[in-house]
Computed example of a mutant assay.
Amino acid sequence: MFPTAEEDSLTTLGADQTAVGPAIVALKIGEQNTYGAVVQHFQGVGSSNLRDANGKEEDISLTDIQYVFRHKISPSVQVGFAPNIQVDWNKEGGDRFSIPIGLGIDKTTTIGKMPIRLGIETYYYVKKNDMFGPDYGLRFFAIPVMPKLF
C-alpha cells in the first residue's frame, strides 16, 4: 500500500504511510461454483502523522478479507458476491469492523479478441467501523479473462 493523497486532509486509516504485509488466497473453482477467500494484512512502515488518543504515532494495521462465491447460471453469466471485510486493528471493539453483504451479476463477453468479465455488485454494510462509514456500496468491474494454465 502506498500513500497517494496529496493533501493530509484526504488521508484516512493512516494512509499517509507505506504499508506491506502477507496475503493468502484459497479458492475452489468448480464447474458450477467458485468459492473461497483472499486474506491480506497491511502493516505500516516509516513515519506517520496519525496519532492515537495519547498522541503516540500510530502505524497502519489493517486486515482485508474478501470472501467470494460465484454460481454459473449459463456458460457466460454468473451471480454471486465478493465483498471486502475490513478490520482496523487501531480501533477499539466493534469500531474495528466494516462488514458488507451483497449480490451481483457478471457476464463474460469479448472486446475484439480479448475475453472480458463485466459485472456489477451492490452491498449493504451490516457493520461499519465508524459513523462516517458507508451504508451501501456499488462496485463495477471489468476483468480480462486469461486462459487456464493447468
Rank of each mutant, 00 (worst) to 15 (best):
R70L: 14
Q66P: 02
I143E: 11
F69G: 06
L149H: 00
M146P: 02
T122R: 02
G14L: 10
F2D: 04
L103H: 04
P144K: 04
P83N: 00
Y123E: 12
G104K: 01
T18R: 06
K113M: 09
T63G: 11
R117Q: 11
F150I: 01
E6P: 00
G104S: 03
D16R: 08
T63P: 07
A15E: 08
L27F: 07
V25E: 08
K56V: 15
G21M: 10
K148E: 12
Q86H: 02
F81P: 04
P144E: 08
W89V: 07
V39W: 12
L118K: 04
T4A: 08
Q86F: 08
G46D: 09
V87A: 03
G102D: 10
V145Y: 05
Q32W: 11
Y125S: 06
I29F: 09
L13T: 05
V39G: 03
I85E: 00
D8G: 06
I65Y: 03
D52C: 07
E57A: 13
G44E: 08
G94Q: 07
S98V: 14
Q66I: 11
I65K: 00
R51S: 09
S61C: 04
A26L: 15
T110M: 09
G104Q: 01
D52Q: 08
R70C: 00
T34Q: 12
E58Q: 15
E31R: 15
R51D: 09
T109A: 13
K127P: 02
A53K: 06
A26M: 14
A23Y: 12
K28W: 15
Q32C: 00
L138I: 05
M1D: 13
Q32S: 10
F97P: 03
S47G: 13
K107G: 13
D64Q: 11
L13I: 07
I60W: 00
A5V: 07
G104L: 00
S48K: 12
V38S: 05
D59L: 05
G102R: 10
V39A: 13
T11I: 14
V45H: 05
